[in-house]
Nucleic acid binder design. Structure first.
Lengths: 151, 151
DNA sequence: ACTCCTTTGTTGGCGTCGCCAATGTTGATG
DNA sequence: CATCAACATTGGCGACGCCAACAAAGGAGT
């Protein structure tokens, strides 16, 4: 069996046609573009932070546990992410007077501004990720992905 | 603004329709199913190991650098993954006599068997991941994902 | 009132995947 | 012969997901 340095990039057949592989590759590309976008215009915020800001903006003040449930983020990770958001003044935390064990998290004006800025970044990223597809195909993909994601 | 414990799981609108979000969710589900499958029938091997075995089986013995290129795995991660594969006797490493800095990695018979076993596991996983879709839709999704993955 | 169970926030840890830098060797190229 | 590139290895980092243990607090049932 001959060796094969000096050859072009290949992908084993076992991988390249498997849906899970394609899903993984597509996701990897999406993540790379997301990362670059957040790097450039995200001001150090990451996916977790955006999810939390989005939930706060839409649903209003909430406890950390509820935030975790709405965003699919583990309670412990919510704590860490909020620490950063609070440090930047994008969010405020205070103890719920009725439930002293509960923190009520509120979006600040600065937080709203940051969310809007991220929205723009995100929109650009969507366009870049879906660029290989026509508008109709993009809609198809979104519909199919939604069902696969749901299970 | 009223609080909202005791409510059902919701997802912020900002997230739930974005292609990158759906891609991420679909990928997450795929990964969860993959993880469960490897847990059950993967004998402690993970994605990296399968990729490496697949490349070796199809393309024959190769240097670690070539393996990395074929599988999209970083050289440093190839080293670590091979360490485990070698420890299990699924792979053999020897120095290339013509290039003493190069290791030639060879798939053993046990490695081939392990690969076959993983193939079956993987096939089952594909079916589970794509279960929400009809056969025609599955083909559509695969075609679209391939293009998105490619960029 | 008292016990039991659950929720909440926090800390700390683990695993996967992807990536990058530095290093010592070695081969190839000028 | 000097330089440069490739190779394998080590070690580290970041994002994301997840889990266990914990103390504080509340709720339910007796």
């Amino acid at each position: 069996m001959p060796l094969r340095h000096d050859q072009v990039r290949r992908t084993p057949d076992r991988l390249k046609d498997r849906p899970t592989w394609l899903l993984s590759r597509a996701h990897a590309r999406s993540v790379a573009i997301l990362h670059a976008g957040f790097e450039a215009g995200g001001n150090g915020l990451r996916g977790y932070h955006y999810r939390l800001l989005a939930a706060l903006e839409q649903f209003g003040p909430a406890s950390q546990a509820d935030l975790g449930r709405d965003t699919g983020i583990d309670r412990s990770d919510v704590t860490a992410a909020l620490l950063l958001l609070e440090g930047r003044g994008l969010v405020e935390r205070r103890v719920d007077p009725d439930h002293k064990r509960r923190n009520i998290v509120t979006l600040t004006t600065a937080g709203q501004d940051a969310l809007r800025a991220l929205d723009d970044v995100l929109d650009g990223i969507q366009r870049e990720v879906l660029a290989p597809l026509s508008a109709a195909e993009q809609r198809q993909l979104v519909a199919l992905l939604a069902r696969v994601a749901e299970g």
